Simulated scan of single mutants.
Amino acid sequence: MIDFEPWDRLLRQYIDQQGRVDYIAWKKEQPQAIADWLSSQKNLAFKSNSNNLEELALWINLYNAFTISTILERYPIESIRPRILGIPNWLAFLWFFQRRAYYMFGESYSLAKIENSILREKLQEPRIHFAIVCASVGCPLLRSGAYFPEQVIQQLDEDTRRFMNNPEKVRYDMESKTLYCNKILKWYRQDFLKVAPSIPEYIRSYLKTDYPLNASTRISYLDYDWSLNQRISS
């Protein structure tokens, strides 16, 4: 199994409690640290029949590590969604997720393959949507530490609760009786409906405040912020 301790130390050093990454310091101080860690682990034998908790921790960590390593290579950038003359370059945006640029266990992976084929289809864990991060402000807050098999279910539960109780991601307006949601809850709606009868009821199960949410609650989806999840060093 992969040694996650080097990755854990990097996250604790460069991620703040708001999930923002200090790319400036990371690139200046340890630009090769992720690549070196991944390189030292990539030829390990991976048993696809290992237990689900090991696979969950493994692939969430790898997804986030691959993402951050790509940002560090390209930094400084403002967003993973580049613009040409003010117009979003959607081809470059899709290529960020679709390119099989990450070599591990004798195979090349893309971020899309890890997310869709492994985390969603194979492992069937909807809470991964509040753990894997695409380096954007609209994403879940990046955890300032690695995922470990013996803790991953608790960690995913914490991530989901943090997301649902963050008014920048989810909020309920009592006056208009409208539930405002991050678009992750729209894009991956079918994943959440496998474990809950409706999106409002899925959200309600994680909220600290018991709002009157049910299947008929009006939903309005918030604009997604694609700007980089960076922390500017003081």
Rank of each mutant, 00 (worst) to 15 (best):
M1W: 02
I2F: 10
E5S: 14
W7K: 07
R9I: 08
R9N: 11
L10V: 11
I15S: 02
I15T: 03
D22L: 11
I24S: 14
K28P: 00
Q32H: 12
A33F: 00
W37R: 10
L38V: 11
S39W: 08
S40I: 02
Q41V: 05
K42V: 03
K42F: 00
N43G: 08
F46I: 15
K47Q: 11
K47D: 13
S48R: 12
S50V: 09
S50E: 10
L53H: 14
E54V: 10
E55Q: 15
E55D: 08
L56S: 08
W59N: 04
N64H: 06
A65E: 03
T67V: 14
T67M: 06
E73A: 12
I77H: 08
I77W: 02
I77V: 14
I77P: 04
I84M: 12
P88S: 10
L91W: 11
L94A: 13
M104F: 15
F105N: 09
I114M: 07
I114F: 01
L119Y: 00
E121H: 12
K122Y: 04
L123Y: 03
L123M: 09
I132N: 03
S136M: 07
S144C: 11
Y147L: 04
Y147S: 06
F148D: 02
P149F: 06
E150F: 07
E150M: 11
Q151D: 14
Q154P: 00
Q155D: 14
E158P: 02
T160Q: 04
R161E: 04
M164C: 15
N165I: 09
N166H: 09
V170P: 07
Y172E: 01
D173N: 14
M174E: 13
E175Y: 08
S176E: 11
T178W: 00
Y180E: 11
K183I: 10
I184P: 01
L185F: 14
K186G: 00
Y188E: 00
R189P: 00
Q190L: 05
Q190D: 12
D191P: 05
F192D: 00
L193F: 02
A196E: 01
P200W: 03
Y202K: 09
I203T: 08
R204C: 05
L207S: 12
L213A: 08
S216F: 06
S220G: 05
L222N: 10
L222K: 13
L222I: 12
Y224G: 06
D225E: 10
D225S: 10
S227K: 14
R231W: 11
